[in-house]
Amino acid sequence: MTHIGIVGTGAWATTLGILLARTANKTILWSRSEARANELETARVNDRYVPGVEFPDQMSISGSIDESVANADLVIIAVPSVTIRENIQQIKSAISTTSRIVCATKGIEIETGKRMSQVISEELPELDPRHIGVLSGPNLAPEIAAGNPATATVAFPGLQMAKDVQAVLSSDVFRVYRSDDAIGVEFGGALKNIVAIGAAFIDGVGLGANTKASFVTRGLHEITRLGVAMGARPDTFAGLSGMGDLIATCYSTLSRNYRLGLGIASGKDLPSVLSELGQTAEGAPTTQAAVKLAKKLGIEMPIADVTHAVLFEGASPEEAIRELMGRMLQPEVRY
Score class of each variant (00 low, 15 high):
Ser171Ala: 07
Lys106Pro: 11
Asn193Cys: 08
Lys114Val: 00
Phe156Leu: 03
Thr97Met: 14
Gln89Ile: 12
Ile144Gly: 13
Pro138Glu: 09
Ser179Trp: 02
Ser171Ile: 09
Ile194Lys: 11
Ile91Tyr: 12
Ile132Ser: 02
Phe174Ser: 11
Val102Gly: 05
Lys192Met: 06
Val205Pro: 09
Pro129Ala: 02
Ala146Glu: 10
Gly107Asn: 15
Ala141Asn: 09
Pro138Gln: 09
Ile132Val: 12
His131Pro: 04
Ser136Ala: 13
Cys103Asn: 15
Pro138Lys: 03
Lys92Ala: 06
Asn193Ala: 15
Gly188Phe: 05
Glu122Ile: 00
Arg130Lys: 14
Lys114Gln: 12
Asp164Cys: 02
Phe201Pro: 05
Asp203Leu: 05
Asp172Phe: 06
Ile110Pro: 09
Asp180Ala: 03
Ile120Ser: 05
Ala167Trp: 01
Val195Lys: 13
Glu123Val: 07
Pro149Gln: 13
Ala141Tyr: 12
Ile194Asp: 10
Val173Asn: 14
Gly188Tyr: 03
Gly208Arg: 05
Thr105Ser: 15
Val205Arg: 04
Ile183Ala: 03
Arg175Asp: 01
Ala94Glu: 15
Val205Trp: 07
Arg175Pro: 09
Asp181Lys: 01
Gly133Phe: 01
Thr151Glu: 07
Ile202Trp: 07
Gln166Thr: 03
Pro157Ile: 03
Gly113Arg: 03
Glu186Lys: 03
Val173Ile: 10
Ile110Asp: 10
Gly147Tyr: 13
Asn193Arg: 10
Ala199Trp: 04
Ser99Arg: 10
Gly188Val: 08
Phe201Arg: 11
Ile95Thr: 07
Asn139Asp: 10
Arg100Ile: 11
Ser96Ala: 10
Ala162Gly: 00
Glu123Met: 12
Asn193Gly: 12
Gly206Val: 15
Glu143Asn: 13
Ala200Met: 08
Gln89Met: 11
